[in-house]
Amino acid sequence: MDVKARAAAIDKCENVLREDYQYNLEHEIWPSINRLIEGLLGRTTELADVYVELHGALAEEPRALKSFFDVFTSAVYSWSPEKVKEAREDRDELTDLNVRIAKVSEVLSDLLSRRTEVKEMSSFSSDTYYHIMDVVEDASEGNGLFRSHLKGKLDKLTYQYDLKYWPSISKVVAKIGVNAANAVTVADDSAASAATEARRPGLADFLKAFEAELDMNRVQNIGFIPDDFSLTDSSMASLVNCGLELEADDLIDASFVKRYRQRERERKVGQAKDD
Rank of each mutant, 00 (worst) to 15 (best):
Lys83Ile: 00
Asp233Ile: 00
Leu65Lys: 04
Lys103Val: 01
Gly56Lys: 04
Arg199Ser: 10
Ser148Ala: 12
Phe72Ser: 01
Val184Ile: 11
Gly42Cys: 08
Glu46Ile: 11
Asn143Ala: 07
Arg199Asp: 13
Arg115Val: 00
Leu150Met: 15
Leu108Val: 13
Val184Leu: 13
Ala181Lys: 15
Glu245Lys: 11
His149Asn: 01
Asp188Lys: 15
Gln220Asn: 10
Glu26Asp: 11
Arg267Lys: 12
Cys242Val: 15
Ser80Trp: 03
Asn98Met: 08
Lys258Thr: 01
Asn143Leu: 06
Asp249Gly: 07
Glu82Trp: 05
Arg259Cys: 02
Ile29Lys: 15
Leu203Gln: 07
Leu251Val: 12
Val71Ser: 02
Lys119Trp: 03
Ala7Gln: 10
Ser32Val: 04
Glu86Val: 12
Ala254Leu: 04
Ala181Trp: 07
Ser193Lys: 09
Glu137Trp: 09
Asp275Leu: 06
Ala194Trp: 01
Thr45Gly: 02
Tyr260Arg: 00
Ser80Gln: 03
Ile176Leu: 15
Ala192Thr: 12
Ala139Phe: 10
Glu93His: 10
Ser235Gly: 14
Asn24Leu: 11
His55Gly: 06
Ala64Arg: 05
Arg6Thr: 14
Ile101Gly: 04
Ile37Ser: 05
His149Leu: 15
Leu41Thr: 03
Leu203Lys: 09
Val76Glu: 08
Ala64Gly: 08
Leu111Arg: 09
Ala87Tyr: 06
Tyr130His: 10
Leu150His: 12
Arg199Pro: 01
Ser113Tyr: 08
Val240Phe: 02
Ala59Pro: 04
Ile169Asp: 08
Asp228Gln: 09
Ser80Lys: 09
Arg261Gly: 01
Asp205Leu: 05
Asp92Ile: 00
Ile10Trp: 01
Val104Lys: 14
Leu203Met: 12
Asn24His: 09
Ala191Thr: 06
Asp233Arg: 02
Glu245His: 11
His27Asp: 06
Arg261Thr: 01
Glu137Ala: 12
Ser67Asp: 07
Glu137Pro: 00
